[in-house]
Amino acid sequence: MITLEDREARFASLADACLEPVRRYLARRADAATAEDVLADVLLVCWRRLDEVPADAALPWAIGVARNQLRNAQRGVRRQERAAARLADEQRVAGGSPDVSALRDALGALRPADAELLRLWAWEGLQPADLAVALGISPNAAAIRLHRAKRRLADELGRTGP
């Protein structure tokens, strides 16, 4: 049986061999903050899947993990941009015309529950019935909360933007 000390030693060896090459790989493909976030995710995957890391190909395996984690992070950014655009379209229909950064700021100023509700609606495309299931509330409550969250967002945009 492998002891915790043996596992920690193996992980330390893996990290020593792979940390800087993976950091350089990520730095060439993403901004510094994203690269560091993805690097942390890579180390977490390496720890969790330590038994799957091939002894003779640890670096290529870690770079493959980094590549996948970076794609996940980039998909997240694209989802955020689509959500912001969708919310901006909703505001244009309502008569406003906020820019995406104003929309992000306004979304960030909302209560976390409202922001999450709007993200579920905009990013994930959940309608009130689906929101009800995800949040464990009735469809009517979900529709009311979504309506109120949209109104709060519009109010916030009115305070901070054009």
Rank of each mutant, 00 (worst) to 15 (best):
L87H: 12
P54F: 09
C46Y: 04
D41S: 11
P54R: 01
L43R: 11
V22W: 08
D41I: 01
R75I: 10
A84I: 02
P21K: 02
L19K: 00
A55Y: 03
L59K: 05
R48G: 04
A73F: 11
D31L: 14
N72Y: 00
Q74L: 14
N68R: 14
R71M: 12
W47H: 04
V53C: 01
L43V: 07
R29H: 09
A58I: 10
R23T: 15
A33C: 07
A30F: 06
L87T: 10
E20M: 09
A40P: 02
L50S: 09
D31Q: 12
R86Q: 10
L59H: 00
L59W: 10
A35H: 08
D37L: 12
R49W: 01
A88I: 08
R78T: 03
L87C: 12
R67N: 05
R24P: 00
V65S: 06
E81W: 15
A35R: 07
A33D: 14
P21W: 01
A33V: 14
A84E: 10
A94W: 04
L44C: 14
R79E: 15
A62P: 04
V38L: 01
L19R: 13
E90A: 15
A17I: 04
D51H: 11
V42H: 06
G95S: 05
L70D: 02
A85I: 04
D37C: 06
A94R: 13
R48N: 05
Y25N: 06
A27N: 08
A83Q: 11
D89R: 08
D37H: 13
P21A: 05
L87P: 00
A88Q: 06
L43S: 06
D51G: 09
L26S: 00
V65F: 14
V65A: 03
L26W: 08
R48D: 09
Q91I: 12
A17F: 03
L70T: 10
W61H: 10
D56E: 15
E90V: 12
A94F: 07
R79D: 15
L70G: 04
A35W: 09
R23G: 12
I63P: 04
I63R: 09
P21T: 01
L44E: 13
L70R: 06
E36N: 06
R78K: 07
V42D: 04
A73Q: 10
V93R: 11
R82V: 09
A57H: 11
R49Q: 10
Q74C: 00
A84Q: 13
A30D: 10
N72C: 07
G76T: 01
V22K: 07
A88Y: 02
R49G: 08
